[in-house]
């Protein structure tokens, strides 16, 4: 989901910046409130920030498809620190990724929307839905990882199709999505397993972080 500079026409780059700015404004307010309420939240934010940064540039070779790709880490972060904080963390990670030849200045908004907003919120939604249906922490976390990872790449494909071929949006969305699927699907499954394992670990050690959806948890403002 690291779209480079020059790919998106300026009007689309600006539009995605606006969408990202809307979410980031809400994110900053929520993170400030939670940090004031719980000083320990800062350490968890730092942990998730470092984890999202490294996971989302961690290229894993998929031999059978002949290419490599990376997980995103934002579904895991969304479960632990909330989707709003995750959007903020992903924007910081994406800014730093620019210096690793990933992403760009003009596409920072679009990349934040795909990785932070889509990955975080869809992942968190899947986690909450699974939890409400009685799934275990592992299964709920796995649902978050799978849904968030796939949502990120589908959103990237949508961003590319909308900006480059608005007249044939659905056709090119499908084409670009199919470009991602062969390599990304196995990685999404791996991200589901790893996210499920982390959520199970957190449920055991800090159940209050997981909110009211599991025994021992307390309501947490996402």
């Amino acid at each position: 989901m690291h779209i480079s500079d020059g790919i998106l026409p300026p009007i689309w780059a600006a539009a995605w910046y606006l969408v990202a700015a809307f979410f980031l404004a809400a994110c900053v307010r929520r993170v400030r409130n939670r940090t004031e309420d719980d000083p320990g939240y800062t350490a968890t934010l730092g942990l998730m920030g470092a984890a999202v940064f490294v996971i989302s540039v961690w290229h894993i070779p998929v031999a059978v498809t002949g290419s490599s790709s990376h997980p995103i880490g934002t579904p895991m972060s969304a479960v632990v620190v909330g989707p709003f904080a995750t959007t903020l963390l992903s924007s910081i990670a994406l800014f730093l990724h620019m210096f690793l030849a990933h992403g760009g200045v003009t596409t920072l908004g679009a990349n934040t929307v795909s990785m932070g907003v889509a990955g975080g919120f869809v992942g968190y939604g899947a986690y909450r839905s699974a939890g409400l249906m009685g799934a275990s922490p592992f299964a709920s976390g796995a649902a978050a990882g799978l849904a968030g990872s796939l949502a990120t790449y589908m959103t990237t494909a949508l961003i590319l199709a909308a900006a480059l071929h608005p007249g044939e949006l659905l056709r090119f969305w499908a084409i670009f999505s199919m470009g991602f699927v062969p390599t990304q699907l196995p990685l999404s499954v791996a991200e589901a397993v790893s996210t499920g394992a982390v959520v199970r670990y957190v449920a055991h050690h800090r159940p209050e972080l997981l909110g009211r959806f599991f025994p021992g948890g307390e309501p947490v403002d996402a």
Binding site: S4, G6, I7, P9, M98, L100, A101, G104, V105
Partner: peptide, 8 residues
Amino acid sequence: RSGGVVLD
């Protein structure tokens, strides 16, 4: 179109 990176 063509893309570029901040730091190659």
